[in-house]
Design a protein around this nucleic acid. Structure first.
Lengths: 126, 126
DNA sequence: CGGTATCCGACACGATACTG
DNA sequence: CAGTATCGTGTCGGATACCG
């Protein structure tokens, strides 16, 4: 990892590795549940059950699964309060908040072009 | 559709309908293949086979399937040249190009945080 | 309450073969 | 070359049940 610095240029193998890693991240993150979770969290701290209520239609399983994935990628932080009943809070980390900004853009786009899309779809279906 | 304008306020049913439609669009568009296609197209016009080569790992089937969906939503335009062998070109429409801008943001994000994510992942896996 | 495990149906996806 | 159709399978994802 350090030896590369000597040339000042990343070698080909590195670029390929970074690319495939990038693709992997992209593939994982660019799924609706992950994006909806990030969007739902926003700037706040939410509990598991709050997220579940916030995100319409997500199942218990998909929520935990995606939360783990996002935690693994360091996009959100999970804090367990050792109370009874247990309480678990989720908050976006800095990378997570950065991602959220771009998702915001996606949501805006959806709203802005809702009409266009609806119309285009009707045209196409005919 | 026009009667609503009289009140000046969208009624509840409308909001719900727009929301569910928005969710539907979001769910369809927020999948890796659709996003990668938009990203690959960019400002250019590409043929089916060029897209296939451009997007690593996409199958013939997934490509056509997603192209149809995006065309149906009016995000890209499909022009068939009646030559032999046939030639089909795909170009982003205005809504498609607008979407592309936000996807660009997603790609930038991926590259910027590649290191963070890789590190976080190793930490998590331990 | 939050998490894990198991089961099982649905369908996403790839491979293949066939048209214009 | 681009598209459609069909088939098989692996994975996704929901439902359920059970632990801390």
């Amino acid at each position: 990892m350090v030896t590369k610095q000597l040339t000042g240029l990343p070698d080909e193998a590195d670029v390929r590795r970074a690319d495939s890693l990038g693709r992997e991240i992209f593939s994982d993150v660019a799924n609706k549940w992950a994006l909806l979770i990030i969007e739902a969290l926003g700037e706040e701290t939410l509990r598991f059950s709050e997220l579940r209520n916030e995100i319409e239609g997500i199942s218990h399983k998909m929520l935990t699964q995606n939360l783990r994935m996002l935690e693994r990628y360091g996009l959100l932080e999970r804090t367990v309060h050792p109370t009874v009943p247990p309480r678990v809070d989720y908050t976006l980390t800095e990378p997570g908040r950065a991602l959220r900004v771009t998702i915001e853009g996606l949501c805006d786009w959806t709203h802005r072009y809702l009409g266009h899309i609806e119309a285009a779809r009707r045209r196409f279906d005919a």
